[in-house]
């Protein structure tokens, strides 16, 4: 399933194509992506929401070891529904990213390269993305059933007591997302609306 395209001209003329990227990411991957690009992600990514972020930052403050190595990682903001028997995972779309704003600059400082969610980010997060060469991606919010089919393996690796907020290791194949904020300070939310406002 293809997602969106890249803003290449006036009034949002689009090239509907997607770039394939492998997770975890390197600086080269980040620098090749611009706001408005579609990506199809394959490889290993990790989930974390509000509660797990709070715990990560507490561990970082104590200089203790995290349950995963953040270097190059993509963190997906998601709290899935329970899987039915025979399913890998339940519905698994992105949650609102703004709630993670307070933690994101610290996560980037400690090696995280990208996060997937939906919705607006703070200016601090956008600056941190430029400083640490990171990107912010959006998956289609409310497409949890469709996105769940791109997840081939799922296991809880930390904080099972948090239920849907536990940290999961996901193996994904062609998981569709769109670059919202790139490492150059571009912002699709601002540019996209400008192109279609009347």
């Amino acid at each position: 399933m293809q997602l969106t395209g890249r803003l290449t001209g006036e009034r949002g003329r689009l090239k509907l194509e997607a770039k394939r990227i492998e997770a975890p990411l390197h600086d080269d991957d980040i620098l090749s992506l611009k706001a408005g690009d579609n990506v199809l992600i394959s490889g290993v990514i990790y989930t974390a929401r509000d509660a797990a972020h709070k715990k990560f930052i507490e561990l970082i403050d104590k200089k203790a070891e995290l349950p995963l190595d953040l270097k190059g990682q993509i963190i997906y903001y998601v709290g899935p529904t329970p899987a039915r028997p025979g399913q890998v995972i339940g519905s698994a779309g992105p949650t609102t990213s703004g709630r993670m704003d307070a933690y994101t600059p610290r996560m980037l400082e400690n090696g995280m390269k990208a996060c997937i969610g939906k919705g607006l980010r703070s200016s601090e997060v956008k600056e941190a993305l430029q400083e640490h060469k990171g990107i912010y991606l959006a998956a289609v919010g409310g497409a949890g059933a469709l996105l769940s089919k791109k997840i081939k393996k799922c296991e809880v690796v930390a904080y099972p007591e948090l239920g849907p907020e536990a940290v999961h290791r996901l193996e994904v194949e062609d998981f569709p997302a769109t670059v919202i904020n790139d490492a150059y300070g571009n912002d699709l939310y601002a540019e996209g609306a400008k192109a279609y406002a009347r």
């Binding site: 039915r84 519905s91 949890g144």
Partner: peptide, 9 residues
């Protein structure tokens, strides 16, 4: 496939 439309039920 009987999967919730959205994970936020």
């Amino acid at each position: 496939e009987q999967i919730p439309i959205c994970q936020d039920t």
